[in-house]
Design a binder for these strands. Structure first.
Length: 183
DNA sequence: AGCCAGATATGCT
DNA sequence: GCATATCTGGCTT
């Protein structure tokens, strides 16, 4: 448990999404191998947001969105892609932050082997790409950020510039500037 | 820059 | 039963 991280997550998805840019996000594999890097892009989703999976209430698919802050909500979409969110806010509020991009820094060889033929700049530059590179699938749905399989590292202190833009790939509530990108 | 196929779990009718 | 999805990669223009 990391109380600094947890206080960010408890502040809600809209606050946590920009605050998470610059954090390190790593997966620790069964052989202790570490893959991941620095979060570059996030999006916020709340329950009163028509673009959110939690908008229409709790279902089997989005169940973990309604659990406690500090776990992953991993979902499958378009028949082949996994995407990972960090659950935020007070338990039961159905909020989460989608991790959209990271800078590949650790375990480059392993990530490239999972995404054959892709350049480093194309390894983790999308929510489904980074899940493929890190090997995140359904098994990580509900996974704690404070356990032995995920590691979150605070920003090292460098200045981080963030811009807010409309979210990608959604149709409803697209006016909200809830995508946060490191520039 | 734009169009489209891919492949399936999920949720609604 | 059926339309859709917090997307990506490859092909066309």
């Amino acid at each position: 448990m990391n109380s600094h991280l947890q206080s960010i997550l408890l502040s809600g998805a809209v606050n946590a999404a920009p605050a998470l840019v610059g954090w390190g996000f790593y997966k620790i594999g069964p052989g202790r191998e570490v893959v991941g890097g620095t979060i570059l892009e996030t999006e916020a989703y709340t329950q009163d947001d028509a673009a959110s999976h939690s908008f229409s209430g709790r279902t089997a698919r989005n169940d973990y969105m309604f659990h406690e802050a500090g776990i992953l909500y991993v979902y499958f979409t378009y028949g082949m892609h996994w995407c990972a969110n960090i659950v935020t806010g007070t338990t039961g509020t159905g909020e989460a932050v989608l991790i959209r991009a990271i800078r590949p820094e650790h375990g480059l060889a392993l990530m490239r082997s999972r995404r054959p033929g892709k350049s480093v700049s194309n390894l983790c530059s999308g929510p489904a790409k980074l899940c493929q590179a890190l090997g995140i699938t359904k098994e990580y749905n509900g996974e704690s950020l404070y356990g032995s399989r995920i590691l979150m590292k605070p920003p090292a202190g460098e200045v981080i510039n963030i811009v807010a833009t409309p979210r990608i790939g959604i149709k409803k509530d697209s006016h909200r500037l809830w995508r946060f990108v490191s520039v």
